[in-house]
């Protein structure tokens, strides 16, 4: 049952990180084009800094969050964890996921409201040109709500599964440097 849910969540998370990846690639291309035009033709692309800040950066930070959680790759300190007995380890994992649900939960809640408010007022910034920025606001609740869902799944898995330790251990990166 939870496996099915997990693969569903992974599908969505992969989708989000694909969007984040596209935004990172666009960030690179957009900035390079801006620099090139500024240098060669003295004609920078107006709004570059604003679009980088309010779209690409926001996407790159908040959309990958669910996948980071599914891969259990958030940064934590496991120095003392390794000294604990399994029962205590399990309890501290429950605490960790509980805290995560709470934090991502309040963020998801608040940023949903903020995104709606930004949409309602048609939020924009004025640089060289006016840049509409409210759509980028929605990257936050999307990332946070899915991260909440992943955290709840993990919480329940730690509570109910016998192989909870494996389910919650970090998956190695594809291109991680070889171990020594």
């Amino acid at each position: 049952m939870d496996r099915a849910i997990e693969s569903g969540l992974r599908l969505l998370s992969n989708l989000l990180i694909a969007v984040a990846g596209i935004c990172l690639a666009l960030m690179m291309v957009h900035v390079i084009a801006d620099v090139a035009l500024k240098y060669v033709a003295n004609a920078p692309i107006p709004g570059t800094a604003e679009i980088v800040a309010h779209y690409y950066m926001v996407a790159a930070v908040f959309l990958p969050l669910p996948l980071v959680e599914l891969n259990n790759r958030a940064i934590f300190v496991d120095l003392f964890y390794h000294m604990m007995r399994p029962l205590l380890q399990r309890a501290s994992m429950l605490l960790a996921y509980g805290a995560q649900i709470a934090f991502f939960g309040v963020l998801a809640w608040q940023t949903s409201h903020d995104a709606m408010a930004a949409y309602a007022k048609g939020d924009l910034v004025e640089g060289i040109i006016n840049v509409i920025i409210w759509p980028g606001r929605f990257f936050l609740p999307i990332g946070f709500w899915l991260a909440v869902a992943v955290s709840i799944l993990r919480f329940l898995q730690v509570l109910t599964r016998r192989d909870w330790a494996e389910v919650t251990s970090p998956t190695p990166g594809d291109s991680a440097p070889e171990a020594v």
Binding site: L24, M27, M28, V31, A49, E50, V52, A53, H54, Y56, M57, V58, A60, V61, F62, V106, L107, Q110, T111, H113, D114, I133, G136, R137, L140, S175, P177
Partner: peptide, 29 residues
Amino acid sequence: LTAIPYSFISNWSLSAVPMFLLMGYIASQ
């Protein structure tokens, strides 16, 4: 919560960090 996560991240100067990370990943990859 309304202010920090969004304002902190939607910052042009910070964009150097993901771009240099990308440079490092590509270079090592």
